[in-house]
Structures are given as structure tokens and as C-alpha cells.
Amino acid sequence: MNQKTLGKLLECARHAIEVTDDELDEAKRRRRLLAGAMRRAFPGSTIYFNGSVAHGDANTPLTDVDLGAKLSSEDADGYGPGQSDALPLMERARQAIREDLSEEFKKLTVTVEGRRRAVLVRFGEPVTLGQPDFTADVMTAIPHPSGKGLYIPNMEISARWDRADPLTHTRLVLDALDKTDRVFARAVRLLKHWNKTHSKPLCSWNIKALALDCIDEPMPLIDALSTFFTHAYDALGDGPTPDPAGVAGPIPLNMPMAEARRRLRTARDDVALAKEHESEGRPLSAQHALSRVLPHIVPDVDATDEEQARLRLSAIGMTGFGPGLVAPSVTPTRAWAP
């Protein structure tokens, strides 16, 4: 068997899931069309991009894109908590998007009704072959009176508006990409795969918010994973992750805290075990442990023979070769959980 280092396994894994250039180019083209429609609908607005495409950590298949318009003071007048909700603004956005994009995208639908935060655009045409569609969330946001962050729609609460700062979020992520020589994005790609294959304990933004606190310099990917899982497990012990921009409330989990931390602890321990196996010359055992963290993109292997050989060598080392020495009783065990 062609044995690979943990570093090589992770490089292969990230390439297996990262978005392709063709997917990304088409997604950005459609995003530009939407941005143009929003600029026409709201002259003087600031268009901002967020989400995985803007943050440089999109995986394949690529199914959506996110953008918003920070409205000018004139367009925002009369909107906000205690004033009008965002429905008239969302209708304005819907009309502009339909007018600008429906000729190219014959199956385009633009939905406002029942939407919590953003206008939902369904293009009726995927950017990844085999996917049912490609969508966009288009936000109509207004400046916060303090000058820090925005009010974004939340049609499910009485105030109808929430505070958030997506522009700062994107800036923080892009700064992290520069500081880490893009290790941040590569690690986040892998972490999103871990999350998806382990019952989604965290939302994608929670992963990135936690990573901002600990993946802050170039490092090997295996160390980035180890650093993240250790930090995330410890940090969530103090409560939900705070908003990195210091504007919105804590980031909610997708499951009870104890269960989310259990998954993080298991991943932390499996990564540590993989590193230990590799440092002691057991590449198959290392790969097996890592495959538990990143199933499907790190192939599993049968490391039983390798572990049995390790135990035999360990027994020989303990007993020596002199006459009269008796080998201790050794019960073979796996180095990983069943």
C-alpha cells in the first residue's frame, strides 16, 4: 500500500471537496448580476458579499451565494425597530432582480413571502452538475444609528430587525486568510466537512468565529485541526461563541451544548491519536484515526496488522533476548476505539 503522511492525506482531502474554478466563476457572475440589480433598486447603497464564496472557503457542490445591500440614509429613512419592517424593501429588491435576470434565467423565482431575513432567489439552473438548483440570499440592510454594524431583517421577532455586522465578519475572515497564508480557509473547508458528517453540531459561521480565535498564523493543516478542536471544546465550555464583531448576540448551536462538545472532544482526541501514531511510525493507524474525523475524504484502512506488529515489537523490547527471561502476558488491543 502507498502510505501517505497526514499532511498529504489532508492535502488530498481538501482538494477533493474544494469548489472548482468553473463553479466559482459562474457563482460570482450570478452574484455580480444580483449586485447590479440591487444597485439599481437602491442607488447610493453599499453592496457587500458574505458567506463561503466571499470568505474563500466554499466546498463543492456549490449551491448558494450570499450578498446584501447596506442602504443609503435616504432609502433607510422610516425603517428599523419601532418603524416599518423590511417587507417594502424586499419587494423592491424582488422587482429589480426579476427585471434584470428573468430574461437569462427562464425558471427564475424570487421569493419574499415567509422569508425570515433575505429575499430568496432560485435560478432554476445549478452551477454544479447534478445539483437541483442554485440559490441566493439577498439581504436589504439599513445602517445602525450608532454607526457600528447594521440592522438586518428578522421577520420572526416583534422588533422585525436584528443587529449584525456582516461587513466586519468578511473583513475579519479575509484578514485571517492573509495572516495564515490561506491555511484558515483550507482548515475551514475540512472543518465544514467534519461538521456535515458528524450531525452538524455547529453552523458554518460558528466554525469560522471559533477558528478566528485560534488559527492565526501559518501552520500545517493537521496542527490547524488539532488547534481548532482543542480551542472549540474549551471555549464552548464557557458558553456559546460570542459575535466576533461585538454587535450581534452569541452564535447558537445546532444541538445541546453537552452533545456538541462531546463531538468536538472526540475529534480532538482522534486528531491527537493520529499525530501520535504518525510520530511513532504507524502511518496506517494514523490514517485510520484521521478517517474517523474526516470520513469519505480520508480513506479508511485496516491497521490491525500494523498494530499487532507494534505490540509484538513492544513485547520483545520489554523482555530482551537473554536466556531465562519470560515474556509478560500481553493482550492485543487496538489503538483506536471500535
Rank of each mutant, 00 (worst) to 15 (best):
W194A: 06
R182G: 02
K196S: 06
S199D: 15
A176N: 11
S199K: 12
N195K: 02
T180R: 04
D181Q: 07
C203L: 14
S199M: 10
L212W: 01
H198W: 12
H193A: 11
K196G: 05
A211V: 00
A209W: 05
W205T: 08
T197N: 14
W205N: 09
W194K: 05
W205Y: 15
D178G: 10
W205G: 09
D178Y: 09
K192F: 01
P201L: 11
H193P: 06
D181Y: 03
A209Y: 04
R186V: 13
L191Q: 05
S199F: 11
S204Q: 07
N195L: 10
K200W: 13
T197C: 14
L191M: 14
W205R: 03
T180L: 07
K196L: 04
K200N: 15
R189C: 08
P201A: 10
K208S: 15
K200V: 15
L191A: 11
P201V: 07
H193K: 11
W205E: 07
R186L: 15
W205S: 11
F184E: 01
K208M: 14
N195S: 03
W194V: 08
N206I: 06
S199C: 10
L191D: 07
A211M: 01
L212A: 00
V183T: 10
L210H: 06
V183N: 00
A185W: 00
K200F: 12
V188T: 12
K196M: 03
A211R: 01
I207Y: 03
L212S: 00
W205K: 03
S204V: 08
R182E: 05
K192D: 01
R189M: 12
A211N: 00
W194Q: 06
C203P: 10
V188N: 10
T197S: 14
L191V: 10
H198Q: 05
I207P: 03
A185Q: 00
L191I: 14
A185G: 01
K179Q: 15
T180S: 09
R189D: 04
N195T: 05
R182F: 09
L212R: 00
K208R: 15
L191W: 07
H193G: 11
L177S: 05
W205V: 08
L210C: 07
F184W: 03
T180F: 03
V188S: 12
P201T: 11
D178W: 08
L212N: 00
N206C: 15
A187P: 02
L177E: 03
A187L: 04
T197M: 15
D178L: 12
I207F: 07
A211G: 02
K179D: 14
L210M: 08
L177Y: 05
T180E: 04
N195F: 09
R186E: 14
D213A: 11
A176H: 10
K208E: 15
L202N: 05
A211L: 01
N206Q: 13
T197V: 12
R186Q: 15
C203V: 15
A185S: 01
N206V: 13
L202P: 03
L210F: 02
L190R: 02
K192S: 04
W205A: 05
L177K: 06
A209E: 02
K208N: 12
R189I: 05
K208D: 13
L190F: 01
A209S: 07
T180Y: 08
L191E: 04
L202R: 06
T197P: 10
A187Y: 00
T197D: 13
D178S: 10
